[in-house]
Write a protein that binds this DNA or RNA. Structure first.
Length: 543
RNA sequence: AGGCCCAUAGCCAAGCGGUAAGGCAACGGACUUUGACUCCGUCAUUUCGGUUGUUCGAAUCAACCUGGGCCUGCCA
């Protein structure tokens, strides 16, 4: 098991030391407006693993302070993904459940003279705020009396004003070089139904006010977030201090995780789903946890990937090879390896008895005897992968079949290619071979070395299968305009092939000997894109 | 440009004043019932973005420079 990044551990350890505390509580605060994707997994795994390593706990808290963007439909999916990843939240909480306390704290700030109701329009607030280079100026409403603010704020809550008419603002410093400190808005009016609170509220706290309060109320010791909240930390601390919260959480920022050639933006993922380019957030092409799960990724491989990849105060873009590496690592001992041919070419063993089918012993996994053996069919008529055959051996590294060469058929015999048949257009339709019965796998035959080992499937018994060659969703650098177009065209190639007719359980993972292909199960009742297998061995083809 | 943050190999990432961990990728080779796996080897010394400085000693400290990121929502 990999360990959590030193960067965060060190920060944490120092902090614990100075506070004389010996346990921590973290929280994972998704906004319920999308599915979790592999990028979120960094925060997710980090929060949970960190708590675990300090003997602490992690709360799941839905950050639902803006009802215009959120709805309940993502809540279950998020909980499900977290559990699938192997984590059990200490509590499942909702930011909106603290609205009453949050409101009381706003009153407290007003009484302390640190918050005021402002009548400026949105645009005016923006103008008064100043720019990066020039200080802002005070709102004309900044010096309202405590009593007047109290009255107005109460009326805001009672719904006496329209959206946009008034907001509650903190009174901090309009000339601060940190624009977040220039009297930030803490409450706005939104006459919208909230998925959890119903119509109880028409004023909603902003993230900057609500989040630190929620953390403090829950006793969160360390509030991890991404780099862009760095500028908000002074405000976070201000809120905790001025609200006189007993618990003082520490905000720690770290970089986001990206994976190359993978599109991670919520906006684009939403477009894919809503535009019906993919079949939902759990489509195997999606980088969501649900999509990766259907693509065959294991929870443990994702956890290990996140831990191994580390984190720091830099947004990182990790090679997708790394993700696949950890999947292979996880599957290599635990899965059966069955054979399949994605782009078939007929292979006939001319010296094998016509009409006979024999069943050979095949090891399910060379590295894990416990997985046992299975029987695979073998006969005169086989299919092999089209690019496992070439007329002439091109170089010394070529370890597949060519005319005149002998290779091993995996789990079976040595065969030698003697002749090729063509169709009218000159395409190869059939390779004629002879086999050597002495060379059966497992018999210890070692008088000759074959020019490699290739996979095959017995033609009469094989199951037809539809494969998709998966290419990851395109790079986020690509121009927006071409975005959907490209995904549609290039990310999904189908091909018809065969899988050996084994007794494997269709819902069990196995490794398949070609990299980058996924089996499509057409028989599924649900839809015809059920990916129940992961294809994870490293590329067996080198050009 | 005002403020803050960041910079170690193709990609991640340790290191926190004592002479550059590890992983992925790549490349040699051995082995092999997949070219996988495993094993062995290679892969930052005009070296840590650059330049100056402090120091017996600097990736680590300081200053400046360069490059990148974030911030002017009643989003989170």
């Amino acid at each position: 098991m990999a360990e959590i990044s030193n960067f965060i551990k060190t920060v944490m350890a120092n902090d614990l030391e100075s506070k004389k505390v010996n346990t921590i509580i973290t929280r994972f605060p998704p906004e319920p407006n999308a599915y979790l994707h592999i990028g979120h997994a960094r925060a997710l795994v980090t929060n949970f693993e960190l708590a675990k390593s300090f003997n602490g706990k992690t709360n799941l808290r839905f950050d639902d302070t803006n009802p215009s963007k959120e709805d309940a439909s993502f809540v279950d999916a998020i909980i499900n993904d977290i559990k699938w990843l192997g984590y059990e939240p200490n509590q499942v909480l909702y930011g909106s459940d603290y609205f009453e306390e949050t409101y009381e704290l706003a009153i407290k700030l007003i009484k302390k003279g640190l918050a005021y109701v402002c009548d400026l329009s949105q645009q005016e607030i923006s103008e008064y705020r100043g720019t990066l280079n020039t200080p802002g100026k005070h709102s004309p409403y900044r010096n309202r009396s405590v009593d007047e603010n109290l009255k107005l704020f109460t009326e805001m809550r009672e719904g006496k004003f329209n959206e946009g008419e008034k907001v509650l603002r903190a009174k901090i410093d309009m000339s601060s070089p940190n624009i977040n400190m220039r009297d930030p808005v803490f409450y706005r009016i939104m006459k919208i139904h909230h998925h959890r609170q119903g119509d109880k509220w028409c004023i909603f706290p902003m993230y900057d006010f609500a989040h630190p309060i929620q953390d403090a109320i829950e006793g969160i010791t360390h509030s991890l977030c991404s780099l862009e909240y760095d500028n908000h930390r002074p405000l976070y601390d201000w809120v905790v201090r001025e609200c006189e919260m007993k618990n003082v959480p520490q905000q720690i920022e770290f970089g986001r995780l990206n994976i190359n050639n993978t599109i991670m933006s919520k906006r684009y993922l939403r477009q894919l789903v809503e535009g019906n380019i993919v079949k939902g957030y759990d489509d195997p092409r999606m980088p969501t946890l649900a999509g990766l799960r259907r693509r065959g990724f294991t929870a443990s491989s994702i956890r290990e990937f996140i831990l191994a990849t580390g984190l720091s105060r830099v947004n990182s873009t990790v090679d997708s090879d790394m993700l696949e590496h950890f999947l292979r690592e996880d599957l290599k001992l635990s899965t059966n390896r069955i054979m399949a041919v994605t782009d078939p070419i007929k292979l006939v063993i001319t010296n094998y008895e016509e009409g006979k089918i024999e069943y050979l012993d095949a090891v399910n996994n060379n590295e894990n005897e416990e997985l046992g053996n299975r029987k695979i069919a073998f006969s005169r008529d086989l299919y092999i992968e089209r690019d496992d055959f070439v007329l002439e051996k091109p170089n010394k590294h070529y370890k597949r079949l060519a005319l005149g060469l002998e290779v091993r058929l995996y789990h079976a015999y040595f065969i030698k290619a003697n002749e090729v048949k063509y169709d009218e257009s000159g395409n190869i339709t059939e390779v004629l071979c002879t086999y050597d019965p002495q060379t059966l796998s497992g018999t210890g035959f070692n008088e000759r070395k074959p020019n490699g080992t290739i996979g095959f499937v017995e033609a009469n018994t094989a199951k037809k299968a539809l494969f998709n060659k998966f290419s990851p969703l395109l790079d986020s650098d690509d121009a927006e305009v071409h975005f959907l177009d490209r995904i549609n065209k290039d990310s999904w190639e189908e091909c018809h092939g065969f899988v050996e007719n084994g007794e494997y359980n269709p819902y069990e993972r196995f490794q398949f000997i070609r990299d980058g292909y996924y089996v499509v199960d057409q028989d599924s009742k649900k839809d015809n894109l059920v990916f129940n297998r992961i294809v994870s061995l490293k590329s067996s083809i080198k050009k």
